[in-house]
């Protein structure tokens, strides 16, 4: 093996440092003393660079093009058993899947906008140990990601969400259980009644007729008209869904990447 000549020299290629004279304070009237400069965000030194950035941003904003036309594909339906929604764009399908099927509770078919909310829901509604544990310690986790607080009851958590996190009092992804459910530390009925109207914005639900998924099956059967207007054919078929399909099976980030590359090709 042939190596360039002088290669070994560069192993010790430490440059000789010129001898340094110890620093002495400047003698008046001279005042120079080497120092590192730090500039605060509003310093005038930044003016030229900031102007350049400003022009760049302006340029971007004026050149923003309208929403790109989505490439159409031949119609296809959602592959989830029982869901017969039909799509003609991959993006529409992707959004549908992420909204309805990605974070769905396999027990009660409710859909959640994030894995965090789904996990919290499953723990509180379908974990049989949860109620027992909740009697001994604070188990109701705050719904805000990044907040580690836990509470004795969902009511306490709601108060916390409203007071500390400025959440709306009718936050829709925090519905309490119906009275028939087995919350042990349930409050007197009068109190519960006070809290109920805050929870579900009944008026809005009925006006929009767009709420079927958010309501758990027991409620849905009480409201068959509402359900009929939704895209989902029936509760029975919904029971067959396999929720939270692992990404390794067919969906997840890999699928999203697939969407992207297809879009590029088109």
């Amino acid at each position: 093996m042939l190596l360039p000549p002088g290669l070994s020299l560069s192993l010790q290629a430490e440059r000789p440092l010129l001898p340094v004279r110890p620093r002495s304070p400047p003698r008046a009237p001279f005042c120079f003393s080497a120092r590192r400069l730090r500039f605060h965000r509003q310093h005038e030194f930044f003016e030229d660079g900031d102007i350049h950035r400003h022009l760049y941003l302006q340029d971007i904003l004026t050149n923003v093009t309208e929403v790109t036309e989505r490439s159409k594909v031949s119609e296809f339906s959602c592959h989830i058993v029982g869901c017969c929604q039909v799509f003609d764009t991959l993006e529409g399908y992707e959004h549908h899947y992420n909204t309805l099927h990605r974070n769905m509770c396999s027990f009660c078919k409710r859909s959640f906008p994030s894995g965090h909310l789904l996990d919290t829901h499953i723990l509180e509604w379908h974990d049989s140990l949860f109620q027992i544990m909740a009697e001994k310690q604070n188990m109701y986790q705050c719904l805000v990601e990044g907040c580690a607080e836990k509470f004795k009851s969902s009511k306490d958590r709601k108060d916390h969400l409203v007071k500390v996190h400025l959440y709306p009092s009718d936050f829709r992804f925090d519905r309490p259980k119906k009275a028939k459910s087995s919350i042990k530390h349930s409050k007197p009925h009068s109190k519960r009644d006070v809290s109920m109207p805050m929870d579900v914005n009944v008026e809005t639900c009925e006006q929009s007729q767009a709420d079927s998924m958010e309501i758990c099956p027991s409620e849905s059967t009480e409201n068959p008209t509402q359900l009929a207007s939704g895209p989902i054919p029936s509760v029975q078929e919904k029971q067959l869904y396999k929720s939270r399909i692992p990404s390794t099976v067919c969906f997840g980030q890999g699928a999203s990447r697939g969407f992207k590359s297809l879009k590029k090709k088109a």
Binding site: H96, L100, N201, T204, S208, A210, M213, E214, G230
Partner: peptide, 18 residues
């Protein structure tokens, strides 16, 4: 805004998007 928030949190993907 109440209605819009209701639609924004609805379970219909298209409605949510709109």
């Amino acid at each position: 805004m109440r209605v819009l928030t209701g639609l924004f949190t609805s379970s219909l993907a298209d409605v949510r998007m709109e």
